[in-house]
Design a protein around this nucleic acid. Structure first.
Lengths: 248, 248
DNA sequence: ACCAACCGTTGACGCAGGTCAAGGCGCGCG
DNA sequence: CGCGCGCCTTGACCTGCGTCAACGGTTGGT
């Protein structure tokens, strides 16, 4: 909890990496200027807690770079991750005074925060923001429901494969790296975080990772770097509909 | 699939039971009139399918009375319920052409449907609708995340208790029936539907119901009627924070 | 009246994944 | 350099829940 929670300056929205994907995606330049007036950047080190569930939260924010997680904890310590926040994702709920989940930086993290009160006022006055937020929330709801299927019905191996597939796909689309079939990436999560995400124990995660490696579905370089030789092979292991990426 | 899918007339919004909770909650009377022009009622029998995942869907809708479910199915038949739709809940996603989930009526069901195209146009022009939909979607997202904790981390007994608690609470608040401690209600779901909701098998559901009964947490009258003598006792079994209903 | 379909319960058994425990690797720090 | 610590792996064992199977009650159709 050392105070490495820097408040940074005021980079302009023009060259913001998430300009066209975040809540502000549809804003016109005058609207951006308004947002600019109520925004500030904060950055966090990997492992730092952004906010605890139940704490007063007087901002909402977009993830600019890095990855954060939303987790819920039961009294006896059982933990379940309920959201993985990637760049452009939105944190916080307009109209709610406190945080509903623990928010933690799993990598170094930069967030673009908006003071809540003025943000709420802007939302009421600026349909572009509310529209975009609705769209993003609907996407998150879909993702949450897909995750419910995973948590409720998939086997440990399918869970791991699904998580790897999600990360692989994101990296593939992001970096346009994959030469049809060969994808490599670094896992942004520890085994324990993976376990919390998947509703497993870290031992089971470790065993299943070893299993997928033994069966040639993935290769490992060190603990974190994953090489997927054949993405289709990995997708088969997820238990999902095999149509994978339609040819559209 | 017999054709008991009646299209009903055009009851007025004025005396609609969900008038103040559904997407239209914030609409002024002129806006209601517009909605009225694009709406139609449909009713379904218990057990009927409203729409299959992947089917073209040219309406969105509110549940007026009855209960519907959203479920996802894997190729091999594993099923997970991902949403329970109660009166006032919204079905369908503006901007998406097909249904993402199977929608099924678990009780007799009446829905207020809006033709999708004009509804989308209205949404763009009527902030009241988009605002309300955002609010409802955020609530659903919260519910989905709570459900993720249940699916990922709770034991079978805790899952059953949580489901009963949700239904008990809803009925208690709805009917203001409970004289501090005594709640009774009919389960709107079969054992199999409960299993699909909770990520269990129907046998496990049955056993845990018997277990809760044996331990005096609930009483059963027939298969479906549940009597909760001591709600706090039930809440203890859910594994959730014990603060239950705060004294505010 | 009978039968079939549906829903629910219960028992016996097996296994996937949790639990407990030991140990390995890499890294920063005294 | 050696030590401790965080992260990961692996093994042995245990158990909660799934699977398979039998059976009872209720309802509706012929």
């Amino acid at each position: 909890m050392s105070h490495h929670d820097l408040k940074l300056g005021h980079p302009s929205c023009g060259d913001c990496p998430i300009r066209h994907k975040a809540v502000c995606a549809r804003c016109e330049s005058d609207e951006l200027a308004q947002l600019d007036a109520i925004k500030y950047y904060r950055s966090f080190q990997a492992g730092q807690t952004v906010i605890w569930s139940g704490d007063r939260m007087d901002f909402v924010a977009s993830v600019v770079t890095g990855i954060a997680t939303l987790t819920q904890t039961m009294e006896d310590g059982r933990r379940q991750m309920v959201g993985l926040l990637l760049p452009a994702d939105f944190v916080g709920r307009p109209g709610r005074p406190t945080a509903a989940y623990d928010v933690t930086a799993t990598t170094d993290l930069v967030m673009c925060c908006f003071r809540k009160k003025p943000f709420e006022e802007m939302m009421a006055a600026t349909p572009h923001i509310a529209q975009r937020l609705l769209e993003m929330t609907l996407d998150e709801l879909d993702a949450a429901r897909e995750w419910m299927l995973l948590l409720g019905r998939k086997t440990a191996r399918e869970k791991i494969a699904s998580l790897l597939a999600i990360i692989a796909r994101r990296d593939a689309s992001l970096k346009a790296s994959a030469s049809k079939g060969g994808v490599k990436f670094d896992l942004p999560l520890t085994r324990e975080e993976m376990a919390d995400y998947l509703g497993l124990t870290l031992e089971t995660v470790s065993r299943q990772m070893s299993g997928l490696k033994r069966d040639g579905v993935i290769e490992l370089e060190g603990k974190r770097h994953v090489i997927v030789g054949n993405l289709d092979r990995l997708l088969e292991e997820t238990g999902d509909d095999s149509d994978g990426g339609a040819l559209v």
